[in-house]
């Protein structure tokens, strides 16, 4: 078990290293273009050369990578040429905002999708099951930007209940959080609910559930004690991996609602070629994704006695 955890962690480190190399090569392979991005299109070659010289860009690629990676690990993320401030200064608050968004999304997503998924899977083919299945196909079929459009048309322009943007210009406003959370929730809900349903439905057809029923246990106990424990192992992994998807979702949602989060930052940076911000954001995103995956894997083995004790 310890070995397994150690393995997972070393794989995580290797992945991060591989990704960072990839990222570095893609973005900083040619110093010339980096200089253009940083100094703007109208900088003269001379200006560029001076800048490159100053920042050590004439060193070989691998050497530059290690300097870059070293800086990264010490929190030296470079400077945003658009905002003219160190990247950290804009990144961390933005990340916090996204964390808030993600927290609320998950706070609704997990209970709703698990409960509905379990209910649907408990009695496969029942009315409730069919309804939940259809709702979940529908919601997973509507891209985030489209549900943002539909929901805005309804709640913002139609009913005038909610604000249409979530810039939070005059401080934190819970109302402004509702629309982004709702959109993210809707898109992910269907997927998690379907997975939970499938897992539950499969467990319900297993012989050990039959054993439990034919032991004369009350239905509640069959479900709570025998079915759920096995049926929730798969959704746990799915939910952990859903964080990865959330990182994609926030980009769209934050862009749509002008929410000042991490996703919007990454997008803006890409559109403006703000290279150090892109690098920092990408590394953070990958870190979050890989870390959750690691937790998911370790958690899976903990939940599953068949793997835990072998």
């Amino acid at each position: 078990m310890l070995i397994f955890i150690a393995k997972r962690f070393s794989f995580m480190v290797i992945t991060m290293a591989a990704v960072s190399i990839l990222l570095f090569v893609v973005l900083e392979f040619s110093p010339g273009s980096v200089a253009t991005k940083v100094l703007g299109q109208f900088a003269t070659d001379e200006q560029k050369n001076i800048w490159l010289e100053q920042h050590g860009y004439f060193d070989p690629l691998w050497q530059r990578y290690f300097v870059w990676a070293g800086n990264f690990l010490t929190g030296e993320l470079g400077e945003s040429h658009r905002f003219k401030v160190p990247v950290g200064e804009i990144l961390w608050p933005r990340l916090w905002n996204t964390a808030v968004l993600g927290f609320w999304t998950f706070a609704f997503l997990i209970p709703f999708s698990l409960v509905l998924g379990v209910l649907a899977g408990m009695r496969e083919g029942s009315k409730l099951d069919r309804t939940i299945s259809i709702i979940s196909v529908l919601t997973t079929s509507i891209p985030e930007f489209a549900s943002a459009v539909f929901l805005s048309a309804l709640f913002v322009f139609g009913l005038n209940w909610l604000p249409g943007t979530s810039g939070m210009i005059s401080g934190f406003d819970f109302k402004q959080l509702i629309m982004p959370v709702l959109v993210l929730f809707l898109y992910d809900f269907g997927y998690v609910a379907r997975m939970t349903r499938a897992s539950m439905a499969e467990v319900m057809t297993t012989p050990y559930i039959r054993t439990a029923v034919l032991k004369g246990l009350p239905y509640r106990q069959v479900i709570m004690k025998h079915a759920l424990r096995n049926a929730l192992i798969a959704p746990f992994t799915v939910i952990m991996l859903q964080l990865n998807w959330l990182l994609s979702g926030v980009i769209v949602v934050e862009f749509f609602f002008a929410y000042k989060g991490f996703g919007a930052l990454l997008l803006e940076a890409s559109l403006n070629q703000d290279i150090f911000v892109i690098e920092a954001c990408a590394m953070v995103a990958v870190f979050v994704a890989v870390a959750t995956q690691t937790i998911a894997d370790i958690g899976y083995t903990f939940l599953n006695p068949r793997i835990r004790f072998s």
Partner: peptide, 24 residues
């Protein structure tokens, strides 16, 4: 029926591994 199942009438199955709950 529940009162009978598992007490007055009990059953033994073909695949013992599948008939037992793996996580209890």
């Amino acid at each position: 029926l529940r009162g009978l199942r598992g007490s007055k009438i009990a059953m033994v199955y073909q695949e013992p591994m599948a008939a037992l709950n793996p996580s209890l």
